[in-house]
């Protein structure tokens, strides 16, 4: 795939999965900075349920790669306290769906302390967490929920869709002085035990590099419709754009890469060109990313639109278990193609 707006690391032909790219970013940063440590459930010998820490325990040992008890409140708070005292913790919440048992530490503490302290205290935590559905894990293990976190002030929210961004965004997240929520979709990790998008394996530069947080990537240039999306849906949008190109419709696909900060300029520039906006979001439809992106156009200049905004998201329903039901609510290539046709009239 094209990562047109990434900084230009050296051209490489080496390919990694998203999971391995993430781990490489963590590992290279840990070698550079001894204040970085990783903790969470099964991040040690297991290597992370979704391979987000594979090999780190063997390399850095139990003093820097720590398996925690199943006590998310305690270890989220531990991350905050360690960050306040000068460390740079990377803490994993195994599934974002588990936020309910520790949200107080995340949003009342980690996210607010810098503000409440009038800028005197910094909390440089990377909170990495698995998101997304598509493999029948049911309503408590399949959500995206980035809209929930992006709604709350004080945390950056980054969401890589491919290996190269996964590494660069991880490096940037670690170096950032703010709490950064790093949300990796299980479907882009390149796991051998789950259906995966072919783009979950991709070229990744070997040297350390940053992908700036807050800068969207235009992953396909086009002139008729702007598709704004993030995470696994980027790939569905690209697949849909390829298919519909045969009908002569030229889609531009924007991978937001982060919701906080949100690259409003990239959205506005593209919609000003195409005059049509389709938002694709694997999170819930209402009060979330899709509404926020639409509001940017409404607040700036709704006259730039040639057609009403269309949204493809999870209708406001818990993620169902049965495959037929789940794929009826997830954003799929088919739903996106049909939305493009709708928007083109």
């Amino acid at each position: 795939m094209v990562i047109a707006d990434s900084p230009a690391p050296q051209v490489t032909t080496r390919k990694l999965t998203t999971a391995k790219a993430m781990v490489e970013g963590i590992s290279q940063e840990m070698e550079r900075d001894s204040s970085i440590f990783v903790m969470g459930e099964d991040v040690g010998a297991y290597g992370g349920i979704f391979s987000s820490t594979t090999g780190l325990f063997e390399k850095f040992g139990p003093s820097r790669i720590l398996d925690t008890p199943i006590s998310e409140t305690a270890f989220m708070g531990l991350a905050t306290g360690a960050a306040v005292e000068g460390m740079r913790p990377i803490v994993e919440l195994m599934f974002v769906d588990f936020f309910g048992v520790c949200m107080d530490q995340i949003y009342n503490h980690m996210a607010k302390i810098h503000y409440e302290s009038g800028g005197n205290v910094k909390v440089p935590v990377v909170l990495m967490t698995a998101v997304g559905g598509g493999y029948s894990d049911g309503a408590q293990h399949s959500q995206c929920l980035w809209g929930t976190f992006a709604h709350l002030p004080g945390m950056k929210v980054v969401i890589p869709s491919n290996p190269a961004d996964a590494k660069g965004l991880m490096v940037s997240a670690i170096r950032d002085d703010n709490p950064v929520l790093y949300m990796f979709h299980k479907g882009v990790m390149g796991l051998p035990w789950m259906a995966k998008n072919p783009r979950s394996l991709g070229p990744v530069p070997e040297e350390v590099y940053e992908v700036p947080i807050g800068k969207a990537s235009i992953v396909r240039h086009g002139s008729d419709v702007t598709i704004v999306t993030v995470s696994l849906s980027v790939h569905h949008a690209l697949d849909a754009a390829e298919e519909i190109a045969e009908s002569g419709i030229d889609c531009e696909v924007i991978d937001l890469r982060s919701l906080v900060p949100l690259d409003r300029a990239a959205i506005l520039e593209s919609v000003a060109k195409t005059g049509r906006l389709l938002i694709v979001d694997e999170d819930y439809l209402s009060f979330g990313m899709s509404g926020e992106v639409a509001a940017i156009i409404a607040e700036t200049d709704p006259r730039m639109l040639h057609a009403p905004v269309v949204r493809v998201a999870v209708p406001d329903v818990p993620i169902p278990y049965a495959r037929t039901l789940e794929y009826a609510v997830l954003p799929t290539k088919e739903r996106i193609v049909s939305a493009i046709k709708e928007i083109m009239g």
Binding site: F75, L78, G81, A82, E85, M87, S117
Partner: peptide
Amino acid sequence: FDPSTHFSCSGIIAEGYPPALGQAFSFKHH
């Protein structure tokens, strides 16, 4: 929040305990 005395507080019941663990973790580490 007072970095000069490493003092903080939380308005949420019991939620001041977990950050203290992290401060202690850092002190032990260093």
